[in-house]
Computed example of a mutant assay.
Amino acid sequence: MKGLKEKFGAGAVLQALAAPALALVAAFVLSSVVIAATGEDPFHAFYVMLDFGSKSDSQVWIINKAIPYYLSAAAVAIGFRMNLFNIGVDGQYRVAAFFAAVVGGALTLPGVLQIPLIILVAMAVGALWAGIAGVLKTTRGVSEVITTIMLNSIAGSLIGYFLSEDKLAVKDGNLFHTPTIPEAARFFLIPTDPDPIYGTVLIAAVIGLAYWFVLGRTRFGFDLRAVGRSESAASASGVSVRRMVVTSMLLSGAVAGLVGMPTLLNKSFNYGTDFPTGVGFTGIAIALLGRNHPIGMALAALLWGFLERTGIQLEFEGYKQEIVGVMQGIIVLCVVIAYEIVRRVVLRRQQREVGAELSARAGAGAEQDETEQKAGASA
């Protein structure tokens, strides 16, 4: 039994190392082919990307860009671990950021009180918005994919309705935005040269640690993963599937509510018509790329930010604008396919090892029986 565990441990290590290596090589080769097909030099493109991405200002930009990407991926991953597809993170973080901005702009409390209040409002609104899909799924059997997509559209319309001068917004030139959050209620910046890193990177770190601990080290996390593997088995063991579905959607929405905080508390300080959108959909790709692992998603978020930052420089070098988007798609596909290939290879290897181990045991048992029979006959 000890030998089997050691072999399975080796298989796990093989899967952990071989899959990323295979994905990296495949992505490099396919990206090179695509760039070469446009008539450009792929090796020069990679050199430009590495050179521009290594600059200090680019590194700060990449980290700041990765913060909301990581939070979005964590929100998506909570649902993924339970086999739920929360496609509505985009709407959840936008409606959460909007109402958090309204509350933040309307109050003048000390920062030590107002900042946590803004964050709690964002998490509560995001949780409630996602909870609608969870309740509809458990009570009416409506697919969370359909409801979250529809709620994205409703969120945009709701924000558009209230983001007017006669309701919850003020007009600033040709733009409408919520009242500006007081300076005392803004999140701190980490001083770096030449630009500062958003202090909300600490929020992302806390969420990553909480994600790892709750899902991997608690009974709740075990129940959540059990429901994701088999609802019938989890129900038979005493887990309330309906409660877990609603709770998971609430948690996913609460984390989604934090996605807009780096922009709101460190950059814009209000919610306007130019507030970033689409981060929720990017989070789906990053969650897949990071295999729903907190460290993997962090690396994937940084990689995504790196590609976006260096893609700007590639355009100045004369490369096609769509190259970066194609590379992002290639990387995600290569990671998904590589992990599936390696998983199947490792599974077949484990099956052969188990078969060999069982055969050896059967042979040893037969020899022992034969020896005992001979000893009994001679006696």
Rank of each mutant, 00 (worst) to 15 (best):
I190G: 10
T192F: 13
D193E: 12
P194I: 00
P194L: 00
P194H: 00
D195K: 06
D195W: 02
D195N: 08
P196M: 06
P196W: 02
P196V: 06
Y198M: 10
Y198C: 10
G199W: 02
T200D: 01
T200A: 01
V201R: 02
L202T: 09
I203M: 10
I203K: 07
A204M: 13
V206C: 15
I207N: 06
I207E: 08
F213D: 12
V214A: 01
R217E: 13
T218H: 08
R219C: 07
F220A: 09
G221I: 07
D223E: 15
D223G: 13
L224D: 14
A226S: 14
A226R: 11
V227E: 04
G228H: 10
G228Y: 07
R229A: 13
R229I: 11
S230C: 10
S230V: 08
S232I: 09
A236E: 07
S237Y: 02
S237N: 07
G238F: 09
V239A: 08
S240M: 11
S240P: 09
S240D: 13
V241F: 07
R242M: 14
R243S: 13
R243Q: 11
M244R: 13
V245Q: 14
T247P: 00
T247Q: 01
S248I: 09
S248Q: 09
S248M: 11
S248Y: 07
M249D: 03
M249I: 03
L250R: 06
L251Y: 00
L251H: 01
S252M: 03
S252L: 02
A254Y: 01
A254G: 04
A254M: 02
A256W: 00
L258N: 14
V259I: 07
G260Y: 01
M261R: 02
P262Q: 06
P262S: 05
T263C: 03
L265G: 03
K267F: 15
K267E: 14
S268R: 13
Y271G: 01
Y271L: 03
Y271M: 02
G272A: 13
G272D: 12
T273V: 14
D274V: 11
D274H: 12
P276E: 12
G278M: 06
G278Q: 08
G278L: 05
G278F: 05
G280V: 10
F281L: 12
F281W: 12
T282M: 12
T282Q: 09
T282V: 07
T282F: 08
G283N: 10
G283I: 09
I284Y: 12
I284A: 11
I284H: 11
I286H: 00
I286V: 02
I286N: 00
